[in-house]
Simulated assay, not measured.
Amino acid sequence: MAAHNESGKKAEEMAAEWLQGKGYELIETNYRYKHAEIDLIMKYRGLLIFVEVKYRSGTGFGYAEEFVDYTKKKLLVKAADAYIHESDWHKDIRFDIVGVYKDRSGAINFRHFEDAFY
């Protein structure tokens, strides 16, 4: 596996643990539908939440949320629709982005953007 894939996978694991520490329940990781993948599917306060995780080893090239473009959002929505149909979900949903950042000292920080798009 390429180094960027490994760090992305580790970022997804850290984001899931961080969200679980905030009371979120992990339902599924890396749900795939055709060409789309949802990093994390979680439940929180009656909502089904689709989470896109972005890892950055700094902010020199921008923040994580800036890297979820229109095409990516469209793919996430299609995958979410498929998951909703498969799981027969009839309650509210939300799309979040979690940025995982490593600062210069190596510490990991998170930025959570709730209801980031639809």
Results as ranks from 00 to 15, higher is better:
residue 56 R to Y: 03
residue 4 H to D: 12
residue 86 E to L: 04
residue 109 N to T: 10
residue 114 E to I: 04
residue 17 E to P: 00
residue 27 I to A: 01
residue 12 E to I: 06
residue 10 K to T: 12
residue 94 R to C: 07
residue 46 G to V: 02
residue 76 L to F: 00
residue 92 D to T: 04
residue 91 K to A: 14
residue 101 Y to C: 02
residue 67 F to Q: 07
residue 45 R to W: 10
residue 60 G to Y: 05
residue 56 R to F: 10
residue 61 F to C: 04
residue 91 K to F: 15
residue 73 K to S: 01
residue 70 Y to A: 15
residue 43 K to R: 12
residue 97 I to W: 06
residue 66 E to T: 15
residue 110 F to H: 06
residue 117 F to M: 02
residue 79 A to T: 11
residue 31 Y to P: 03
residue 84 I to Q: 14
residue 104 R to C: 00
residue 65 E to H: 10
residue 15 A to P: 02
residue 16 A to R: 12
residue 47 L to D: 03
residue 41 I to R: 02
residue 84 I to K: 13
residue 21 G to P: 02
residue 45 R to N: 12
residue 45 R to M: 12
residue 19 L to E: 09
residue 49 I to R: 04
residue 24 Y to F: 15
residue 11 A to P: 04
residue 74 K to P: 00
residue 20 Q to P: 01
residue 100 V to R: 05
residue 86 E to S: 06
residue 81 D to P: 02
residue 103 D to H: 00
residue 63 Y to A: 07
residue 58 G to K: 10
residue 111 R to N: 02
residue 66 E to A: 14
residue 69 D to H: 14
residue 111 R to M: 04
residue 60 G to I: 03
residue 60 G to W: 11
residue 105 S to M: 03
residue 34 K to E: 15
residue 79 A to E: 02
residue 29 T to M: 13
residue 58 G to N: 15
residue 101 Y to G: 01
residue 92 D to W: 01
residue 30 N to R: 09
residue 18 W to N: 13
residue 57 S to F: 07
residue 34 K to W: 04
residue 46 G to I: 05
residue 93 I to N: 02
residue 59 T to S: 10
residue 74 K to N: 08
residue 28 E to F: 04
residue 85 H to S: 15
residue 48 L to T: 09
residue 94 R to F: 07
residue 44 Y to K: 15
residue 57 S to R: 10
residue 100 V to Y: 01
residue 63 Y to G: 06
residue 30 N to Q: 13
residue 20 Q to F: 02
residue 100 V to E: 04
residue 115 D to A: 08
residue 114 E to V: 01
residue 58 G to Q: 08
residue 9 K to L: 13
residue 59 T to K: 15
residue 14 M to K: 09
residue 90 H to A: 05
residue 42 M to T: 12
residue 24 Y to I: 01
residue 98 V to D: 03
residue 32 R to A: 04
residue 78 K to V: 00
residue 80 A to V: 05
residue 28 E to M: 06
